[in-house]
Nucleic acid binder design. Structure first.
Lengths: 210, 210, 210, 210
DNA sequence: GATGAATGAGTATTCATTCAT
DNA sequence: CATGAATGAATACTCATTCAT
């Protein structure tokens, strides 16, 4: 019964925030952002509407927080503070990580796709204010830029190992489109792709682009 | 001073309907379905809100009409009443047509992607009622099924011309993911892909999958 | 092919007006006044919305016209220009006429009940302007007043033939309530009262009040 | 400063609900269901439009709630769990109760008459869903059926006390029409019936049908 | 006369957000 | 901290009526 320390309070707060975000992520990604009401989220999280606004300053802030949290996770997982070049084995690891994260965070990707394609929401979430929020000290925008640089460099360097009409720009293009196409399909219709589907795709990608 | 003939009325109706659909397509695809209000559409089309409902029985009906109109166009363009097999040259033509239609109907694809990913809207538009609407006498659903059959068959038959570890299922998979990925990228960020971008992608696809 | 005379025009006009009123009466009484749209009436009468307003200056005017027409019919049927007293046989005839007209003009009574009980509509229809419209030269309001006077007089005079505790005011009251109750029941649930229902009620009323 | 307890909330809710229902009953019965707007009700109840929907899920639900509340009251008042027969004195009590409730709940009866005669509204309010709502554990439909059975039985048994040409079916018919006629008249034109009007009617009914 | 396209004021309903307790 | 009653701005949709042709 001793009074809680400030850090204990902080911890409880974080826990509650995470609970709300979990519930919201599930509903946002399955039902959509607009159709999911604050009332709905609050009820499913077992709290009151008013308390929601104690943790998040608006519905959009809640969405932005969810996205930021997931991106931070992924960011850490990929650890792209890679100052040197990607070896072929690191490239393979990279692909495997992509597919792993695609599978592991399916709900999040579903949400992200929907948000990205919905202009009104997108702008509000990635407003000036939110864009400057840094994750683990690195601004969000840098994340994808780092990736792009690493891959460009990888395919550029692969030229040496490749045939005469190898074009690194085309190669990067085809690779990213293949990944994007697969990502979307797997996120939105994962039900139909079972068994060794993931493995076969990974193999094909490695055979072609490693 | 003499009253309008029925055919004059019909012509007026058709014109207005198309005007409204054009305006709505632009806004739906750029701003989104929910955020675009009827008031907005009416104002931009230079008509009253009420008139909208003279032509379309609801906002959803308007959306469905737009989609149907475009699909009918595309359907005619592809003319997929193909009972025999696809030759390699026909396959090339097929790819070129895809990219042409992707370019030509960009607004429509943008809309379609958004709708498909937005759970609530999709179901309402492609309700039982709308799904049974036939375009040029052929139910909409058949369209994509025809495509799938043709391609499956094409990659199956290509086995004869291919190497020993050629797997038609994997091939079809990689091909459609590549197309999907490209489609999405080109529809949503066409600004950054200019010059010979389309040509390079087509060449790469043909080289790989023809 | 000779040009129509003015009276021929007038006749055609009357015919059209009656057609519209017939259609409207049917819909107003079965579906209700508010739920029945002008478009609906026009379509069922085989004319255009615009033409409707050529014959009737508003929806309410149409309703008032229907009511006036029916009341005029009934008025003529009853011919209440009765300057002398009602004999018992005339009273019997009167009751029989009531039930006949109730049966014959069921649609109209249905409409009238609904309208009378719907304050908003009632006031508009029986506005100052319409109340002064005379039917066959007699203002509408007089109609029911004439009836009331005749009946009051009848029951008053019956005192001579009746027992000691006969109260003409109570008698009139009970009689009119019985008729009203029966009228409403028969108009709104005529389906369940078949066979000799009408006859039995008439007999009972005559036995009691003649 | 301490937060409200659940029971305090419940009390507030109940109070507001009743306030809204009271205001709505008054307007629905005097002005009509359709012509009474939600805005109107809200303004007269001193609340916002939105709050209405916190308590009632639609305008029709509000109407149904009002009707159910009144019927529950009346049901309790009549307590028709009468398994045995009606004695003449119980019949008299029954009639007196009818007239009492007619007087006491005049607004409600006005509303009910209007609703019953308005086809569109009636069906929505007494939809499958609402009809099955039970009042004090007894389905609404049973209420009137109980009444009908009791009265049929009463007039049937009265045969023994009556003259040779007494027909119980006709008697029941005349009685209910008289009550119906009186009910309607008293509900819609009570202004003109003052003084001993009620008493005189009750006496006449008792003399004739007890 | 006759048509139906066009108008616009009006209506029910939703939902993020605030705030007294 | 926590609650949920209360708000109000916004939105889709309806329909009597007008008017150019």
């Amino acid at each position: 019964m001793s009074p809680r320390t400030p850090s204990q309070f902080e911890e409880m707060r974080e826990e509650k925030k995470n609970l709300i975000m979990d519930v919201a992520l599930e509903h946002f990604s399955n039902i959509g952002f607009h159709p999911t009401t604050i009332t709905h989220i609050a009820r499913h999280a077992g709290i009151s509407k008013g308390l929601m606004y104690n943790y998040f300053k608006s519905k959009e802030d809640l969405l932005a927080s969810i996205i930021n949290r997931s991106i931070a996770d992924i960011y850490t997982y990929f650890n792209p503070d890679h100052d040197s070049h990607l070896t072929p084995d690191e490239f393979e690891l990279f692909i495997r990580k992509i597919f792993h994260v695609l599978h592991e965070k399916r709900q999040f990707w579903k949400l992200l796709y929907r948000i990205m394609l919905q202009p009104g929401v997108y702008e509000k979430v990635f407003s000036e204010e939110n864009m400057n929020i840094s994750v683990s000290g690195v601004p969000l925008r840098e994340f994808s830029e780092n990736m792009a640089v690493l891959l460009t460099d990888y395919f550029e360097r692969k030229k040496e190992r490749a045939g005469p009409d190898y074009d690194p720009r085309v190669e990067l293009l085809m690779f990213s489109n293949a990944v994007k196409g697969f990502a979307m399909t797997s996120v939105f219709s994962a039900e139909q792709y079972q068994g060794d589907y993931f493995e076969r795709v990974i193999d094909a990608l490695l055979k072609r682009y490693k």
